[in-house]
Structure formats: structure tokens, C-alpha cells
Amino acid sequence: MEHTATYTEAELVQGLKARDQKVFGYLYDHYSPALYGVIVKVLNDNSSAGDVLQDVFLKIWRYLDSYDERKGRLFTWMLNIARNTAIDILRSKSHKLDQKIQNITDAVHSINGPLAVHQSTDYVGFSRILEKLTKEQRTLIDLAYYKGCTQEEISRVLDIPLGTVKTRMRNAIIQLRTILNK
């Protein structure tokens, strides 16, 4: 990456609110892989993901003034914008649950597929996590986070009772924290 300076989050926010394009460039370089990853995982479509990413950064640029650092980190705020934008597009494309199941199945399968080419540097770390999560735990997390499914929808998609969805989801998130917060 071309940038030389590093910013603290407070400096970042200050620079962005001042419409400093250099800071915005740093923000893009630093966070676009994570946001792009979310968009691709939600849409499961590389062709439109670039346009959506651009939209997401335009929203960030436009709505910066509504970001309140007391309520959460900038990264959290940006992730929410990326996820909500992509899920809105996903929902507007297909209202059908069937299609969503298809999407999530494809998404799970495509991990080692063509997307791997663009994988950012943490892929090794990510495979380490994958080993420690069951396939069902991953599917649960992905359906909820990347596809925006509700408990009821997950229950229908995976054909497991609602109570079981809650229990297993809880275990999956706990497991995730155990792996990553070591």
C-alpha cells in the first residue's frame, strides 16, 4: 500500500469529517478489503460487488457527519453500512428464500473457488478458524450475518427448530470468540 502515514481512529474521524481526501484514501486502502469481502459474501456476485463497494464508500463520505464515535468504532459503523447496503440489494434482487439458500450454499462452496485469487492476507489465519468451526456453525453465522436471515428463516432453511437455532447459534458465536480472542 502506498500510504506512509498511519492514523489513530480519532485522527481518522477528524480528517474524514474535515473532508480530507488523503485521509479518505487511507481509509479506503485500509478498510476496502474487509468491506468488499462482506459485499461479495452477501451478494455472492463478483460482477456487481465493485459498484456496490463504491456506493458504500460514497455513503461513508456523504454520511460521515452522522457517525458518532461515542456509539461505536468507525470500523463497526462502516461494516454496518456495507452489510446493510449489500443485504438491501440482495433482498431487492430476490425475495425468495429458496434463492437465498442457493446463495449461501454457493457461498460456502466458493471459498476455495475463484474468489481465492483475491483473498487478502489473512487467508491463512482464516483457514485456522475454519478448522475449528463446524460446517454447520459457519453456515449458521453466514446465514445470519451475510444473508440477514432472521431466526425463523434460518429455522426454515436448515429445517431445525427455532430453539435449536438459538442454542446452536449461541455456541457458534462463543466458539468464534474462543478461537479469535486467544
Binding site: G25, Y28, P33, G37, Q54, L79, Q119, I129, Y145
Partner: peptide, 30 residues
């Protein structure tokens, strides 16, 4: 703590977007 692990999980699945997206983005902003 949970948010950190969740965001780490997401960040690890990051992908590099095509290089022309950034240029197009700044073009739009300007």
C-alpha cells in the same frame, strides 16, 4: 469482546477489490 471476534472473522474474509474502484470513487467525489 464479541464484537471484536465477529469483526475479526469478517475482516479475515476480506477480499481485494479491483484497482479501478478506488479511482472511480475519487473521480465521483471530485
Amino acid at each position: 469482546s464479541y464484537r471484536h471476534s465477529m469483526e475479526e472473522y469478517i475482516r479475515m474474509q476480506g477480499l481485494n477489490p479491483a484497482t479501478d474502484v478506488k479511482a472511480s470513487l475519487f473521480n465521483k467525489i471530485n
